[in-house]
Amino acid sequence: MRLLSKTIRETGATLLVWGTATSITIPFLWLIGDLLWHGWPQLSLNFVLALPHNAGREGGIGPILVSTGLIVSVCMVVALPIGLGTALFLSEYTRNNHMYGRLIRGSLDVLAGVPSIVFGLFGNAFFCQTLGLGFSILSGGLTLACMVLPILIRTVEESFRAISQDQRLSAAALGISKRATILLILFPAAIPGLLVGCILGLGRAMAETAALIFTSGYVDRMPESLMDSGRALSIHIYDLAMNVAGGNPNAYTTALVLVGLLLTINLFASWIADKWTTLNQLPT
């Protein structure tokens, strides 16, 4: 009797687990399939390059891609040095119980959890109004920089921490200064991790919408400078879906482009990470 109920329990658990996996796979395939089904037929080089017409119902996404590229570039150019410096400081100059380090790490952890819409509010108040940058690509990029900073710092810090302590000790034994050890020995070893961090940050910036709505604005013209307002891909999708009747076909295609870009970025990151781990696992 007990054996029977045990068998029932085991079978039940197995069914439950497999059922869960299936029930998650279905909407996922549905989503991807739907995007491909509706988006793929219109996808062409022309769509990628052309200007949008008629509020985006017709035409392409050329200027939007350019704006997205500019916003993301601003974001990375600003976030990278700050992120790198902070990560180096946290991994090489603070111990885990170091007060200053713990404060910074703690505030970054909280920052990582702050909703993007709140970053949007902050960006609007600080960059657009207080600094007087207005609705511009620069404001948007700077806001995104604040947002990706925590994720960037965490990945880079981890890649520095992953370097074996032996390397630091043997460098110290050779009388090499800490700065030189960092720049000449640790830095090259951490480059793959750095790249992965950058790419993940890039992906997060590109996927972002809420933080951009009232920092970089809605304008879908080709931007002429960083002070122009520019519309990001994600905002374009939002606008077409919510505010433009009949905008769905182009929204589908734009969504497909965005997902495709993000997918490429993520695949690239995991390819680097894989390659890196296999390299590290080689017998020395």
Binding site: L35, T209, A210, S234, Y238, A255, L258, L262
Partner: peptide, 10 residues
């Protein structure tokens, strides 16, 4: 990795 706006759109 799928952006929230795409989830929303779907």
């Amino acid at each position: 990795g799928i952006p929230s706006v795409v989830f929303g759109f779907w």
